[in-house]
């Protein structure tokens, strides 16, 4: 195989599931390209990726704030009422002296999701305004490092499991935050499904290439 220079490597894609080499082709707006070996989605083309991403990530941040401020579930046992919020779950672990678990939980269900969506908002803003070439690079690197460590979806399932354990003993009322968290998790899943990080890299390349070319010609 012959290549003109290293930048020509951007036309190639390696499947992240089975490591088969592919050549990238232009596809229609809104469609996706799949791996020929295992059928995994390799990339999508969305001409309004920055706008979609910005809208989705701001929505997700709003729902995340709702999920953290309001009570998640409320239970009634023997006339006593108790409720929890997301911060309360790991704060109570700290109170009981479980510092390691508390630290791990707070990172996995609070700090990392918050960071991811703040980074998304910053990133898409930068790409939209066409500024910050190095900053957007740093943000993308940081994003791909913390992406696998966000576990709000697992936390949502855990809430359900914990509630089923309590069914016989207490009356359970779902709070606003539970539904907000559900919407947040759905948005999170939708974003990780449709906006793969390599697409944001490609978008960044297109934007700054265009900008640099314009500056040169001007």
């Amino acid at each position: 195989m012959k290549l003109e220079n290293e930048d020509a490597l951007d036309d190639l894609v390696i499947c992240h599931k089975c490591h088969t080499l592919h050549k990238e082709i232009n596809i229609q707006d809104g469609s996706k390209a799949c791996c020929r070996e295992c059928g995994t989605v390799l990339y999508r083309y969305d001409s309004r990726l920055a706008e979609h991403g910005l809208a989705l990530s701001i929505a997700a941040l709003i729902f995340f704030a709702l999920a953290n401020f309001f009570p998640l579930v409320k239970i009634e046992i023997l006339g006593h009422e108790q409720f929890i919020t997301i911060p309360k779950t790991f704060v109570s672990l700290f109170d009981n002296g479980f510092y390691i678990v508390g630290l791990i939980c707070s990172f996995l269900i609070f700090i990392f999701p918050l960071m991811i969506f703040s980074i998304y908002v910053c990133l898409f803003c930068l790409l939209k305004l066409r500024i910050g070439e190095t900053l957007s690079k740093e943000l993308l690197i940081l994003l791909s490092h913390i992406m696998p460590w966000s576990m709000s979806d697992i936390f949502l399932i855990s809430i359900l499991v914990a509630l089923v354990k309590l069914i016989g003993y207490a009356q359970i009322h779902m709070g606003i935050a539970f539904w907000a968290l559900m919407v947040f998790v759905l948005l999170d899943l939708y974003m990780t499904r449709t906006m793969h990080i390599s697409e944001i890299w490609m978008l960044r390349k297109r934007i700054f290439l265009k900008k640099n070319r314009k500056e040169k010609s001007a």
Partner: peptide, 16 residues
């Protein structure tokens, strides 16, 4: 991690 989260939730919730 499910089990750890469940324990965290139960510990925060049942505090009577």
């Amino acid at each position: 991690m499910i089990d750890v989260f469940v324990v965290a939730i139960l510990a925060a919730l049942i505090h009577l």
